[in-house]
Design a binder for these strands. Structure first.
Lengths: 195, 195, 195, 195
DNA sequence: TATGAATGAGAATTCATTCAT
DNA sequence: GATGAATGAATTCTCATTCAT
């Protein structure tokens, strides 16, 4: 068991508080209106300290986007996996609904990660991560009768998640063309047709 | 018949050159790296002149996004309407392919309008515009057998265009998860299922 | 009788509306926050027109200060002259009270003419003006028993009006050290001692 | 005993040099004609440093006005207190003459602090300051026979200092209605009558 | 006279980044 | 590692003034 020194813990605390401060400020005031000086003030550390842990504002932002994107997906799949379903269709729609509900509750986060909730990017970054792989397994199992080529499963996942993400952004953040709840039935109908 | 004075023509020229300069710089250097002083220098006008026509950088940007978004759609529908097709499916796929090919050729534009190619927003802004309405008519005619509720046609258009837009952005700009040409067959397959 | 042409009347109208607009804006938004473009917009004339009547912002301002300063004094003396008094003291205090009450009602004006309500300056500008001269006559008559040297009457008027003006500014505008109504008794007591 | 670090000393030096530069420029060129860039250039620091110590131009100005106003009064009272006088009247006139002579020598300063030499404001800001309190004691002692109400002493001081200040401004800066030396006898006569 | 588009100098302010302590 | 004072380039935006129409 690795020994983690007090210094190590302290460093981690600093980084965490910077990350948390950045997240809080980015979502509430926007990326544009958040300066590094705001972040360090909120985090309670000195300005120079920021540069010990991050390259610049966009470095933290990238970390946040990746973390939160995968968090959304992982939470939705875990949520889904504790239930039983009669069909893949049912399971998938439950999974997608979990994502939508999460984003509805976290409008500010959705605005922040904007349309960066890209399966392609998350998949690449977390290809060895259990939670993310489970999403793949769900689709693999569900689509096994379709005789899809190697790699096409990834593409289908990508397309569906792109669709969900961009519809959510438009409906939840912009309110265009309607509210998300009005869009859901049609969206689900379409997803059913896709699979 | 309205008289258009020399002054009026000159004003239009100034605004156009500012718009064109902004577009050129935004696409090649990015929005962040383009200062108002760059725009006016390129446009060959004084700094104050910019503020005679636009509120700030984002005011031009919004105009550009809206203009170009609709331009893409209008060009694709016009492109489509001069041809004959055996089925709606064939026609729709041709229309979508036109959009994709346009975006492939204009990667910088795609990056700029980001994922703002939102049917909801464009539709709202151009609801009396002939070109945009024709897209609606195409879908209305093609989907007439489905017995869709009033308003659902708009939702279907929205969903399909969101899908196409975000897939294009991810594949063409980020190259994730694959190139757009590899994605096209699956994407088309899925759209065929949707309708 | 001089013929005043329509053109002449029109010109006067323009100048008046510029003057009025400037006064309104100076008092409500402050001199600093009022640009020439604001004045012309409010006056309903073109920018260039401003320069046909005034040199710059401070040119109008100077005219306003002088006009309004003398207006205050003239109004107070006219107000006073329609009444009968038993003594010079009574008359003078009534005159001063008229000034104070006027300034209390026109706090914004007081702020604008600031401490420019200087007897020295007004006297110089309006030395042939009836209303202003009447103030002099009042003092001359009231102080005739004091055997003052030539010119000393002007000095006494000056000192008393300076005193009243600066006390009003401090009390009415700044509220320091107390409200003007609390200061009045002492101020009047002191003025009584002076004469 | 508080430790004052080298850093602390350095910071103080920077602030002082900015303050001094601002004072020099404000008095010689006027507030309007002094830009922040002029101040920092003169002070020999970077532009951003200015904002580390002051909010804006008017922030330094306010500090200067308050400082200098009290400096004038404190210097005059100290000047007065080292002497012996036979009466309060004599002492007061000496005190006032000290103020006038100071302002005569510092016409630029007088112009800057304008008519902001207000006893009300200075008193409020420095209510615990020894020098300023001594002025109060002088009056309290001198006026003890008058049986004045609590607070009335402050009002008398206020009125006399307002009078002196505004007469000085008008005579020394504007030269209206005459030079200060010609005004002095009458002014002193009036002050004698007041007390 | 009157107009108002165009000008461009110039002012204020911000903020990422460095570096001596 | 941690600090935070100092930097100064960069950017936005204003506005008095001009001048062709």
């Amino acid at each position: 068991m690795k020994h983690i020194s007090k210094v190590e813990i302290n460093k981690r605390k600093k980084e965490d508080s910077l990350y948390a401060a950045a997240y809080e400020l980015f979502t509430t005031q926007g990326i544009h209106n958040t300066a590094i000086s705001d972040i360090v003030k909120k985090a309670g550390v000195a300005k120079g300290t920021f540069y010990l842990y991050f390259k610049d504002k966009y470095d933290v932002l990238d970390k946040i986007i990746l973390d939160k994107s995968s968090e959304i997906l992982v939470e939705a799949i875990e949520h889904t996996n504790i239930k039983e379903f009669d069909s893949f269709e049912e399971k998938l729609l439950y999974f997608i609904d979990s994502i939508i509900e999460y984003l509805k509750e976290n409008k500010l986060l959705l605005k922040l990660i904007y349309k960066n909730l890209s399966w392609g990017v998350v998949r690449k970054a977390y290809k060895d991560y259990k939670g993310i792989n489970e999403i793949y397994y769900m689709f693999e199992d569900g689509l096994k009768d379709y005789d899809l080529k190697e790699g096409d499963i990834e593409k289908v996942i990508f397309i569906i998640l792109e669709l969900v993400g961009s519809v959510c952004y438009s409906c939840i953040v912009l309110g265009e063309p309607t509210e998300i709840d009005e869009m859901k039935p049609i969206l689900f109908e379409i997803i059913k047709k896709i699979i």
